[in-house]
Design a protein around this nucleic acid. Structure first.
Length: 155
DNA sequence: GCCAACGTTGGC
DNA sequence: GCCAACGTTGGC
């Protein structure tokens, strides 16, 4: 089983929205590297951190599971969607997505600041300069380190 | 294939 | 709002 971190802007779709919806198609991926990851490297049963990005307090806020295979993102064919891609061929869709399922919120937000300060997370991709991918792989060790922080008091 | 211009992400 | 770091586009 693999672990992931998936970013979402809470103003657009937050952990509370996922808690309400239960299962949700993770649409809007428009980066080939990320598409390849969800197509080739992700698997049903993988676990992912829900991460709030581009907001006041960027932080990991919850846990979800991957519950579907990769399938075409319908928003790429929806002319009224901001994710519409006129260049995508319906017979060979360019953009894929997977469904994710809400598992639980973290007991507390684990902020980017805290992750960056962690001595054992210096190689974590989220902490790397110039990282702009909306989905990142998380190693098993990183996963347990991050979840270990959940039970520690906020620093 | 090179590279400048432009667009996007996302922390700050 | 600013800006660094990319990715993409398109002329050549």
């Amino acid at each position: 089983m693999a672990y992931w971190l998936m970013k979402s802007e809470p103003d657009g779709y937050s952990i509370d929205d996922l808690e309400r919806d239960g299962v949700e198609p993770w649409d809007g991926i428009r980066n080939y590297q990320v598409r390849n990851m969800i197509r080739d490297d992700m698997a049903v049963g993988d676990m992912a951190l829900f991460y709030h990005s581009a907001c006041k307090t960027p932080a990991a806020v919850g846990i979800m599971t991957i519950v579907s295979e990769a399938y075409p993102d319908p928003t790429q064919f929806d002319a009224s969607s901001k994710y519409f891609d006129a260049g995508s061929d319906p017979d060979n869709p360019r953009w894929l997505l997977r469904d994710v399922k809400f598992e639980r919120k973290l007991a507390r937000e684990i902020t980017l600041k805290e992750l960056k300060a962690h001595p054992e997370l210096q190689d974590f991709q989220l902490n790397k300069r110039g990282n702009r991918l909306s989905i990142l792989p998380v190693s098993e060790k990183e996963w347990s380190l991050i979840l270990g922080l959940e039970k520690a008091p906020a620093s």
